[in-house]
Structure formats: structure tokens, C-alpha cells
């Protein structure tokens, strides 16, 4: 074990939900030993960490890659803090403001968590674009069901909602070209759009009318909660997520909206 490293016995592993193909994993475990001061000789300290080696239940990680889990938080909830922190980061990057329209697409395990966080940030309304079959949709806002309308109808409905609002922020998690197209077209002046799903084919985009002339900002990224643990501001977002999850009611709502997350 090198300087400033911690030996962690992993107890629970969270899934990487990203489409990046990097299969990053993270987990919650008990800090067993360290050469730093913080956890030396203590076994009751739980940490959240990135897992590079999934073959062993005990791993050694740099101290900087570990985040102490508040003692008040159950370990399942600590795992949930990662996608929640990532969702907080998404809307932060899009500068979603109180009263702005927030749009997100289905197609990702964490889609509705992102919708939920949009509500918490004051998005009004929060609109979900997705198929009815996308899975359990949380009642965080209006859903425009794509299985019941063609893209032109969806665009018409969305534009009507957008017209009434002074601000627009949207996240695509689906990577579906027809949905991305709807978002580009519906985006008003000064709109912000994050492309966070992985498209399977190259896109055709009217940058002139939909980005240049609208003064829009397009953030190109991938939504993978595990990547948040490598973000330079991870401590800020994780702390916020931990604080939010310390409220049991709020934590249960979060757990419900993340598909695949089960409370033990």
C-alpha cells in the first residue's frame, strides 16, 4: 500500500449506467486500513469509491478516490448518492433556473431521477419525452408519450409549452436521432441542451438555425453516474447528494425512480 492509500472491503456495488462502454463501477465499503490520519485504526468508517478491480472484494484505492459516507446514511442510499450527484451535476451544467421549462428524455435507468432533480431545481414544467413502455415513470411532470404521437406532433406540443416560458434546458439520454431532432427544433433562443445519450448513428443537425441563430449552448457529454466520481467537483455534488438522501422520504422517492435500484 503506497502513501495516502486506503484498503477498502467492498460490501455493495453500484452499477454503472453509462453507455460509454467503460464499465466503471463504484461501491460502498468499510475502510480497513490507511496510512493517512483520517481512518487509521478505525473500522467503522464507510466510504464510497470507484472500483477498478472487480475481482477482489478488498481493494486498495487512493485516499482521494474515497468519500466518507455519513453515518446517518444507509449503505444502499450511499450508492444512490452517485446517480443523484450526477443528476445534480447535469442541471448545474445547464444552469436550470426556477420557472424554466426542463425537458428530459426516457431511455436511461436514471432518466426519471434527472426529471426529479429538475423539479427540485424549480423546473416548471418538467417534461419527459419517452415511450409509455420506457418503464416506470415517476410523476415528476408532464409526459409526452412518443408511442402515441409522431415526431411532428411531439414537436408541436413541445413548442407550445416552450413558447410560454422565458427559459429552456433539456437533456437527451436516449441517443435517438428523432428525439434529438425534436429537442433541437423546439429549443428557443438561448436554450441549453445536453446530449448525454449515445447515438448509434451520426446525426444531421441544422447548426445554423438551431444553435448559431438561437445563441444556444449544446453540451456534449455522456451520462454515466460513475464518471461523476472522477469529476473535479465530485466532493461538492456528493456532499449535496448525501445531505438530500439523509431525508428518508426524499431518499425513498429517489430509490423509486432509479430503475434497478432496490432497497435492501
Amino acid at each position: 500500500m503506497g502513501l495516502c492509500e486506503i484498503e477498502v472491503k467492498i460490501e455493495k456495488i453500484g452499477s454503472s449506467f453509462g453507455g460509454g462502454g467503460d464499465c466503471l463501477a463504484y461501491g460502498v465499503g468499510r475502510a480497513l486500513a490507511t496510512n493517512g490520519d483520517k481512518t487509521a485504526g478505525r473500522s467503522d468508517v464507510w466510504v464510497l469509491t470507484v472500483i477498478d478491480d472487480r475481482s477482489s472484494s478488498t481493494i486498495v484505492v487512493p485516499e482521494t478516490a474515497c468519500f466518507p459516507v455519513p453515518s446517518s446514511l444507509e449503505h444502499d442510499m450511499a450508492l444512490l448518492a452517485v446517480p443523484l450527484a450526477a443528476a445534480l451535476n447535469v442541471w448545474d451544467r445547464l444552469h436550470l433556473e426556477l420557472g424554466e421549462i426542463a425537458v428530459y428524455t426516457g431511455g436511461h435507468h436514471c432518466s426519471d431521477l434527472i426529471g426529479l432533480v429538475a423539479v427540485w431545481r424549480g423546473g416548471t414544467p418538467v417534461i419527459r419525452l419517452g415511450n409509455g413502455s420506457d418503464g416506470e415513470s415517476v410523476s415528476v411532470g408532464t409526459t409526452i408519450d412518443l408511442s402515441k404521437a409522431d415526431p411532428d406532433e411531439v414537436l408541436g406540443m413541445l413548442r407550445k409549452r416552450v413558447e410560454e416560458k422565458p427559459g429552456f434546458a433539456a437533456v437527451d439520454l436516449s441517443g435517438r436521432p428523432e428525439l434529438i431532432d425534436v429537442l433541437f427544433e423546439a429549443m428557443p433562443r438561448w436554450g441549453r441542451l445536453m446530449l448525454a445519450g449515445r447515438p448509434q448513428t451520426p446525426l444531421t443537425v441544422d447548426f445554423y438555425n438551431n444553435v448559431h441563430r438561437k445563441g444556444a449552448t449544446v453540451v456534449c457529454d455522456m451520462f454515466d453516474p460513475a464518471l461523476l466520481l472522477r469529476n473535479k467537483d465530485r466532493a461538492i455534488y456528493l456532499s449535496a447528494a448525501f445531505r438530500l438522501l439523509e431525508n428518508k422520504e426524499r431518499a425513498e422517492v429517489c430509490a423509486r425512480v432509479v430503475r434497478g435500484h432496490r432497497l435492501s
Binding site: 447515438p199 451520426p202 447548426f207 444553435v211 448559431h212 444556444a216 449552448t217 449544446v218 453540451v219 456534449c220
Partner: peptide, 18 residues
Amino acid sequence: WDVWNVSQKKHLTVIGAH
């Protein structure tokens, strides 16, 4: 536009200015 390889993997921010 190969949005994945050209832009998403590089975490680019594209800003319109007219």
C-alpha cells in the same frame, strides 16, 4: 456528425453566437 466520437467523448460545449 459523429456526435459520440467527435463531441461527447471529448465533453465539448458548443455555443451558438449570432
